[in-house]
Design a protein around this nucleic acid. Structure first.
Length: 292
DNA sequence: CATTTCACCTGGTGGC
DNA sequence: TGCCACCAGGTGAAAT
């Protein structure tokens, strides 16, 4: 499930492979719900633009796009070189949300096109960028910054938020702490795995009311969450089911899980069997001994 | 308004 | 072996 660490891994991989490149041709599938912006509008906007940079905001991958440039291979190559060396202020953004099963792949145009491919971007370098998403929970959006606001994500960034702001956010709602962690308008980037893992590390039960947690508990949670996310980023994310990064490599963090999908197995701290309940409509895993 | 529930999707799993 | 009910969970709309 792509959450912050998986999305970060994908964004870094894609950035390394396509920044400085130029989009020369675009193809989209005809699956309407994949497109937050109508596909024709996206194709018109993307074609000819240079990819200045690719980065993550919350669970979103943002492509910063430069102005579209003229035709001709020589001009394209020069354009690529120019944009590599100078920072260009972006004129547009392509925003990719992976949903549950979305993947961004950088491949040769000749490699077999997987089923459920919804976007194919031909790049000036000869590479092809593909968006593949079997369950179609992912979303593609285009913003023209002359007209639209730049994308900044729905909520605060979990990795950099400070103690005061974190406490203020979670003291502002009566939801369960699990539901609050999953609410992207509060913190952007936390999903089911890292919500469960950080609550375990902080020793907090998922059904506690967010606004009833003490400042000390919330700060334990913030520190635990940041440590868990940073470690997962270092390990390339968690590969549960079939998540892979831009190389097709699997992450390693799933071997570090303390509670997620360990129902009935002994707690790594106290040997008590891990319990599974449903909170906020999600499978939720916790240790009844270590979490209070 | 705040909060909770549910529909959207397909592939994988496990029971019979 | 084949069939099918069921589960996974990010998000936004609908219900409460």
């Amino acid at each position: 499930m792509p959450e912050l660490p998986e999305v970060e891994t994908v964004a870094r991989g894609v950035h390394e492979r396509v920044s400085g490149d130029r989009i020369v041709q675009v193809w989209f599938s005809s699956q309407p719900q994949t497109f937050k912006t109508p596909p024709i509008q996206q194709a018109d906007g993307l074609k000819g633009r240079t990819i200045v940079a690719v980065h993550r905001t919350g669970k979103h991958i943002v492509f910063e796009l430069g102005p579209s440039s003229g035709n001709g291979l020589r001009a394209e190559v020069q354009e690529v070189r120019r944009r590599r060396s100078n920072a260009v202020s972006p004129e547009a953004q392509w925003i990719v949300h992976l949903g549950m099963t979305g993947r961004l792949l950088v491949t040769s145009p000749n490699s077999p096109v997987p089923s459920h491919t919804h976007a194919r971007l031909d790049l000036a370098s000869g590479k092809e960028l593909r968006f593949v998403d079997p369950r179609r929970f992912g979303r593609l959006e285009y913003r023209d910054l002359q007209r639209d606001r730049a994308f900044h994500g729905p909520g605060a960034e979990p990795l950099t938020i400070g103690a005061q702001e974190f406490a203020a956010l979670f003291h502002s709602t009566r939801m369960t702490i699990k539901a609050a962690l999953l609410d992207q308008s509060l913190l952007a980037g936390v999903g089911n795995i890292y919500a469960d893992e950080s609550l375990f590390q902080a020793g907090i039960r998922p059904r506690r009311r967010s606004n009833r947690l003490t400042f000390a508990e919330l700060d334990r949670l913030r520190v635990a969450l940041q440590k868990v996310l940073e470690k997962a980023v270092r390990l390339g994310g968690s590969s549960v089911s079939n998540y892979v990064d831009a190389d097709g490599e699997r992450g390693l963090f799933q071997f570090q899980h303390y509670v997620y999908q360990r129902t009935g197995e002994p707690c790594r701290r106290c040997q008590t069997p891990i319990r599974r309940v449903v909170v906020a409509g999600r499978g939720t895993h916790y240790c009844p001994q270590c979490q209070n």
